[in-house]
Design a protein around this nucleic acid. Structure first.
Lengths: 227, 227
DNA sequence: GACGGGAGAAACATCCGAGGTCTGCGTTGA
DNA sequence: TCAACGCAGACCTCGGATGTTTCTCCCGTC
């Protein structure tokens, strides 16, 4: 095994064992390198890799720190991974989202506070008459993120967030805009909101299922005709 | 932005744009470095990071290649991420698994072939009278993996597989400390199997829910009394 | 005494070049 | 025909030199 991979494992071990806690600063490059028995160059490769998955955070001129290691942070790195998938696997991701999102929405209908729900309403009404595609995407992302947050499970929230990469979502909205399906989608958002506001988990779950299934169906059709 | 991060983005872009397809070989380090306008050292850091998340695969003495980019491969990297989570977030992961696993089991009941089901039966009967804890855990993992595979969705399968990471330890504890839990778990496995064999999605879903919920409940109690 | 600027130290960022090791493949000899 | 040899190509590892950023402490001014 290359020394760099060994270093990755050792640093991982130091964190898992508790020797390095979230927020702690690592020894400086030179010291850690000699301690792990490799050169600074090789150590830097290990550190860089752990940075990409948000386990470490290097600040030039300061030092290298262990991140908070919160699920949100680590799962965010998954967005990077999802970006690599092409259209043929997007449907599989969407199918998973179709499982998770209704469950999260039902939980949100049980757990969201009145304040949360009010914010959700503000969000829904925060779009102009004829919004740009960018605004639609941003609003859509935020709407679903708030609901996922409302489930009270940060792992679930991050997962849902990552599963539909921003790129995919943008493409979908562009397509919906062209077909004039924007109004229908916004109606579904409103229906989901109202079910949550009424604290009706099963209704909320159903609307969420309908919503995601609609997107899935549309995407399947589009991909089918394209190929 | 550091040049290394730029390099990561550029390589990612080359892959997403299709300039580099799965299985393709990258230009050699020196060439790629000069093309991206940085030193070999910095480029190596970028490559190492992309290796960790299984996007690139370097073979010493040969070259650097783009992996197959299959969902399974990329999501496997998530296991690495999940390893960093402590017990306090295990319950959140388990809650997500409680959403995914029943859905996967229901799908499996619809889609698994007779051959798949026969293999599942073999697996169930493949344990001795008094198996070791290691054998139990391995058998359990494989049982659930087969079912997840049977859902026909590789993303779903990999996700469930990764989520089991942090709960693995919990399973071991359970087997060690609760003698009666072994028989109960095996009964539930058999019930899940029979529902799948009978192609009854809803029954399979319910048994899977019961199964995961049981683990969740037990873990919640244990963590509660430990703290 | 409080505030602000500047010097210096600490730490990471980047680059370079040299030597080592492994793999694939063509060559050679039996 | 086939197996062993050897070479070239590509990655692995190292150590040092130099640039950049950040933080801290000291000092002069108000």
């Amino acid at each position: 095994m290359p020394v760099t991979d060994e270093a990755i494992d050792k640093i991982k071990g130091m964190i898992i064992s508790g020797e390095l806690a979230p927020g702690d600063r690592l020894p400086k490059e030179a010291d850690l390198a000699s301690r792990l028995g490799l050169s600074r160059s090789s150590l830097r490769e290990a550190v860089k890799a752990l940075c990409l998955i948000r386990v470490l955070d290097v600040r030039q001129g300061d030092g290298t720190y262990v991140t908070s290691l919160e699920p949100k942070l680590l799962l965010d790195a998954m967005t990077f991974v999802v970006d690599f998938h092409r259209d043929d696997t997007v449907l599989e991701f969407l199918a998973v989202r179709r499982i998770l999102e209704p469950a999260a929405t039902a939980l949100a209908a049980q757990r969201m506070t009145e304040a949360d729900i009010a914010e959700l309403a503000t969000l829904l009404e925060g779009l102009d008459e004829s919004p740009t595609v960018e605004a639609l995407v941003a609003n859509d992302l935020e709407f679903h993120r708030r609901i996922a947050l409302g489930s009270g499970n940060s792992v679930l929230c991050s997962l849902i967030d990552s599963l539909s990469g921003p790129t995919t979502r943008a493409r979908i909205w562009r397509g919906l805009t062209q077909e004039g399906a924007v109004a229908k989608t916004r109606e579904q958002h409103r229906a989901i909101y109202e079910a949550i506001a009424a604290h009706e988990p099963e209704l909320a779950r159903s609307w969420a299922t309908v919503h995601v299934a609609g997107v899935e169906q549309w995407l399947r059709k589009t991909l089918g005709s394209a190929s």
